[in-house]
């Protein structure tokens, strides 16, 4: 199932301006990631589409991040990464 969100031409500076190597501080990176991804959480959590794979492809592409950075860095709750209140 295709992703209803077009991640190709989004503005990734919300992440790339705050999450930088070689340190990749977890707090900065994960907060930035959540700020970017949370508006699309419903589509990202729907694993019957390819939204999350697509989004990570572009995040890694634009930010030149090592594979798995956010998966390895970010942990919140039992259920997942808690999004900031709107």
């Amino acid at each position: 199932k295709p992703c209803p969100v077009n991640f190709e031409f989004m503005n990734y500076t919300i992440i790339t301006s705050r999450c930088k190597g070689p340190q990749y501080p977890a707090k900065l990176c994960c907060d930035a990631f959540k700020d970017f991804a949370c508006p699309y959480s419903d589509d990202l959590n729907d694993l019957s589409n390819d939204c999350s794979s697509t989004m990570f492809s572009y995040i890694n592409l634009y930010g030149n991040y090592p594979p798995g950075l956010f998966a390895n860095l970010c942990r919140d709750d039992k259920i997942g990464l808690i999004c900031p209140a709107l």
Partner: peptide, 20 residues
């Protein structure tokens, strides 16, 4: 209130299945 979250299932798509 029901809070939004990004599931670990979605986050796991950040992992690549190679380089072990």
């Amino acid at each position: 209130t029901n809070r939004r979250y990004i599931s670990y299932g979605a986050l796991s798509k950040n992992n690549v299945p190679c380089s072990r």
